Amino acid sequence: MGRLSIVFAALLMLSAISLVTARFQSRQLFVASERMALKARELDIDWRRLQLERAEQARNARIDELARDELKMTTTLPGRTIYLKGVPAASSAAAAGGRP
């Protein structure tokens, strides 16, 4: 009976140690899972911010403003516009020496 008690006591101790180890690992995995979820939320927020920033950068009004302010560009006026007349394709081939 004495040996059987010692064997059961040893098995009980192993079981208790196994339970404590399993709970510790479970807590570590839970903490790691929460960290990854927080990181995923942060990345999602960054992604949305970048999408808004990209939309703002590509906005036509902003591009127009930058062209006027930084590049000193102005809107074209009909009086300042020079129109060039193109040479027809048939006469340009004749001018090039008769090559087709």
Rank of each mutant, 00 (worst) to 15 (best):
A95D: 03
F24K: 15
E34W: 06
L43S: 10
V31R: 15
V31I: 14
A94D: 03
L29T: 12
I6L: 14
D69R: 09
I6W: 07
A16Q: 14
N60T: 00
R41M: 10
V20L: 14
L43G: 05
T81E: 10
W47D: 07
F8Y: 07
A37C: 03
T76Y: 03
G97S: 05
A61F: 07
S18P: 03
S92Y: 06
V31E: 15
S26V: 07
W47V: 04
T76N: 06
I17N: 12
R49Q: 09
A32R: 14
S18I: 09
V7S: 13
M36E: 10
I6H: 13
A9H: 13
R59I: 00
P88H: 02
L43F: 12
I63Y: 05
P78Q: 08
L71D: 03
Q51S: 01
R41G: 01
Y83R: 10
R59S: 00
L52Y: 08
L38E: 13
D46S: 04
L84F: 11
R48P: 00
W47R: 15
T74N: 11
A16R: 12
R48I: 03
V87D: 03
A9D: 15
R27Y: 10
P78V: 04
S5F: 09
A95P: 01
P88F: 02
I45A: 05
E56I: 02
G86T: 03
R48Y: 12
L52T: 02
S33Y: 13
R35P: 01
G86K: 06
R62T: 01
K72S: 13
R23V: 09
M73A: 04
D46I: 04
A90G: 05
L11K: 11
Q28H: 08
A37M: 08
V7Q: 13
L29C: 07
P88M: 02
A58D: 05
A37P: 02
G2R: 15
R59L: 02
G2F: 12
T76M: 05
R99I: 01
K72Q: 12
S92V: 09
A55K: 13
M13H: 06
M73F: 02
R27K: 13
S92R: 15
A96V: 01
A61N: 04
Y83Q: 07
Y83H: 06
L4W: 11
E53R: 05
T74L: 07
E34Q: 14
S5R: 15
R80T: 00
L43D: 12
L50E: 06
W47P: 01
G79L: 07
L52D: 04
D69L: 05
E70A: 06
S92E: 11
I6A: 15
R41I: 04
A9Y: 07
A37Y: 06
R35Q: 14
S26R: 15
L14F: 14
L19T: 14
L12P: 02
D44N: 10
Q57L: 09
E65K: 06
R62Q: 04
R49K: 12
D46Q: 08
E65F: 02
